[in-house]
C-alpha cells in the first residue's frame, strides 16, 4: 500500500514537472513569437468584444429586460418569450415567410448558378465568354438599395415587364407586382438570382476547369452527344463542390436575407415579405421589446447551427466528406 502511494506520488510529481516544463516551453515560444502575438492579439480582443460579447446578450431572451436596470436586477422569466413566439400567429407567419424565401433562394440559387456555369463552359468563343461573365457579375457589385430600386422600377405600373406583357397580350392590364403579396416570394427569388447568379457561377466554373479534358475526348470517341457529356462528365465533376456549398448554405436556412425584403416590402405585401430579421428589427429597435426580439434572433441562430451540424453529419455518413 505505502509503496503504491509513493509510486503514485512520484508519478504526479513527475507529471507536474512535465506540465511545468510544458508551460515553460509555451512561454518560451510566446516570447519567440512575440511579433506574431502583437499582430494578432489586438484583433482577437476586437473579435471577443464585437463578435463574442453580444452572445452574452442572449441572456436577455430569458429576462424581461429593462435597459435602466443592471444585470443582477433583471427579472428572469425562463422560456416565456420563446413560448410567446410559438403561440403568436404573427411570428408563425414570419417563420413561414423566412423558410419559404430561403428555400426558394437555396434551390434557385443552386440550379441557376450551376446551369450558368455549365453553359458558359460550353461557349467556344473565349472573348464572348469573358464579356458575358463580366456583365453577369455586374449586379453583384450593386448595393441592395440600388438593386431594389431597379427591381421596383422594372416591376412598376409603367415598367418594362408590364409593357412587354401588355404588348404581347399576356395580361389584360398592368399588374401591380409589388402590391400583391402572393407574388413577393417569386420576386425575391428572381431578384436574388438576377443579382448573384453570375457571381455564384464562379466557383462552379473553377470546379469544371479541374475536370480532366481527356474524359470529354474519350466520351466523344465513344459517341456521347454534347448533352450526354454535360450530364455524365461536367455535372458529376462538380459534385464535391456542390455538396460543400450545400452544407454551408443549409447552415443559413433561416437567413433568407434582410435587405431585399426590407427594401421591397410595403404595407400591401407585408404578410409575405416580413421575415425573422425584419421582425427582430421591428420589435427590438422600433418597439424597444429587446427581450422578445433577442429571443427571435437567438432562435434563428441556434436552429441554423443545428441544421449545419446535421447536414455535415449526413454528408459524412453518406461518404461524401464534410466541412470539418
Amino acid at each position: 500500500m505505502a509503496m503504491d502511494e509513493k509510486l503514485t506520488q512520484k508519478v504526479t510529481i513527475k507529471s507536474k514537472a512535465d506540465q511545468k516544463s510544458k508551460f515553460k516551453n509555451f512561454l518560451k515560444k510566446c516570447k519567440q513569437q512575440h511579433a506574431l502575438l502583437i499582430m494578432t492579439v489586438p484583433f482577437i480582443i476586437w473579435l471577443f468584444i464585437f463578435k463574442y460579447l453580444p452572445i452574452w446578450g442572449w441572456t436577455m431572451a430569458f429576462q424581461d429586460y429593462k435597459p435602466a436596470l443592471s444585470f443582477s436586477e433583471q427579472e428572469w422569466v425562463g422560456f416565456k418569450h420563446f413560448l410567446f413566439l410559438f403561440h403568436d400567429n404573427h411570428f408563425l407567419m414570419v417563420l413561414r415567410n423566412t423558410l419559404a424565401m430561403s428555400l426558394i433562394n437555396l434551390v434557385l440559387g443552386f440550379v441557376t448558378a450551376i446551369g450558368l456555369a455549365v453553359f458558359l463552359n460550353e461557349l467556344r468563343n473565349l472573348a464572348f465568354k469573358r464579356v458575358v461573365q463580366t456583365i453577369s457579375y455586374m449586379p453583384h457589385f450593386l448595393s441592395w438599395v440600388v438593386a431594389a430600386s431597379l427591381v421596383s422600377f422594372t416591376l412598376s405600373f409603367d415598367g418594362i415587364i408590364n409593357e412587354i406583357l401588355v404588348t404581347f397580350n399576356l395580361v389584360k392590364e398592368e399588374v401591380l407586382w409589388l402590391g400583391i403579396g402572393e407574388y413577393f416570394w417569386g420576386i425575391i427569388g428572381a431578384a436574388e438570382t438576377w443579382k448573384n447568379v453570375g457571381w455564384n457561377a464562379i466557383i462552379y466554373l473553377a470546379a469544371i476547369s479541374m475536370i480532366d479534358q481527356e474524359q470529354y475526348e474519350a466520351a466523344k470517341i465513344d459517341g456521347a452527344s454534347r448533352v450526354q457529356r454535360i450530364w455524365h462528365i461536367t455535372i458529376p465533376g462538380m459534385k464535391s463542390v456542390i455538396i460543400v456549398l450545400l452544407i454551408m448554405n443549409i447552415g443559413y436556412i433561416l437567413e433568407s436575407g434582410f435587405e431585399p425584403q426590407y427594401l421591397l416590402g410595403n404595407p400591401l405585401n407585408v404578410a409575405y415579405s416580413e421575415n425573422i430579421d425584419i421582425f427582430v428589427l421591428k420589435y427590438g429597435i422600433s418597439m424597444f421589446n429587446f427581450s422578445l426580439a433577442t429571443a427571435a434572433g437567438m432562435f434563428k441562430t441556434v436552429v441554423s447551427f443545428i441544421f449545419l451540424i446535421a447536414a455535415n453529419n449526413i454528408s459524412k455518413r453518406m461518404g461524401e466528406g464534410g466541412l470539418y
Partner: peptide, 18 residues
Amino acid sequence: IFVMTMYFNGGLIPTYLL
C-alpha cells in the same frame, strides 16, 4: 474562433446594445 463567428453571432439586438 474566427471561423466560428461565420455561423454564430449575437444577432442584431445584442450587437446594437453593445
